[in-house]
């Protein structure tokens, strides 16, 4: 991967985070301001990305939707990482019984496609942004549990851990000094790439009408409405999705670069 591409992706991510924290910096328009006289207007000087069916500014809604969308991606991964990580560590460090229980549970979890598992959570708990975060996060737990366990086991079997034992370090000390620090980094790196997947899954829930409810701006739910106006307003369907894709690409590029670097390979 080219260095310039990685830097560009990192810059995009920085802009997105800024937009999530302070959307006013990027648009002066109110994302909720309805203008019944100016519905479905094509891009113009006043509305660079056009307006939606209620005359709201599409750019303002995309900018103000950044916070929710990033929350979906990062929040869901955080949920999956924390719970999956703890389970994986227990499996990787614990005795055979603990490992067996965790692994069989994750076998069952892996049998469900993530989106379907998320839909079960939504059916039971109801829709909304925080439930969507929870749903996608829960669906990701088995995956991260496996990842962390595999990582922990690989490190436990590595030469330097054996060398530390041979040196006479106590078992808890070996885990604290060598196993945990070495397991954390690659898992965090892989989680970065996972943010993109979670973001897509979260906005898919919104697209299906099960995530963030209108009128709150969110990229997936904007597309959900936009699909009714495809024949009349291309900009409405194109730009929010482009925002998702651009975000996912940036996260993936940065994540891959981090992975290559952590493996000691060139970008």
């Amino acid at each position: 991967m080219k260095r310039a591409g990685v830097y560009a992706a990192a810059a995009v991510l920085a802009v997105l985070v800024l937009a999530a924290l302070a959307p006013e910096l990027f648009t002066a328009q109110d994302p909720l301001a309805v203008d019944s006289g100016g519905t479905l207007r094509p891009p113009s000087a006043g509305h660079p990305l056009g307006t939606d069916e209620n005359g709201r500014d599409v750019l303002a809604r995309i900018v103000h939707g950044t916070r929710t969308s990033l929350l979906l991606g990062f929040g869901a991964v955080a949920v999956a990482l924390v719970f999956g990580g703890l389970l994986g560590l227990a499996a990787g460090l614990g005795n055979r019984l603990v490992e067996g229980v965790v692994m069989r549970l994750s076998d069952v979890g892996m049998a469900f496609p993530e989106l379907l598992l998320a839909l079960v959570v939504i059916t039971v708990a109801g829709g909304g942004t925080s439930n969507a975060v929870l749903a996608i996060g829960v669906a990701g737990i088995p995956n991260y549990a496996r990842l962390v366990r595999a990582q922990t086991l690989a490190i436990r079997r590595s030469g330097y851990v054996e060398a530390a034992h041979a040196l006479g370090l106590s078992a808890p000390r070996v885990i604290l000094r060598h196993v945990l620090p070495n397991a954390v980094k690659p898992v965090l790196v892989l989680a970065t790439v996972g943010v993109g997947t979670a973001l897509v899954a979260g906005s898919a829930l919104s697209f299906l009408g099960l995530g963030t409810p209108p009128p709150e701006p969110e990229w997936g739910s904007m597309l959900s409405t936009a699909r009714n106006f495809i024949s009349r307003a291309w900009w409405y369907g194109v730009f929010p999705g482009a925002a998702i894709t651009l975000t996912v690409i940036s996260v993936t590029v940065v994540g891959r670069a981090l992975r290559l670097r952590s493996e000691g390979r060139a970008w």
């Binding site: 030469g159 330097y160 060398a163 041979a166 060598h178 070495n182």
Partner: peptide
């Protein structure tokens, strides 16, 4: 009793 391995790199914590 200490040890020296064939592959020294694997025997060091990479960090």
């Amino acid at each position: 009793v200490q040890i020296v391995y064939q592959d020294p790199l694997a025997a060091f914590d990479p960090r």
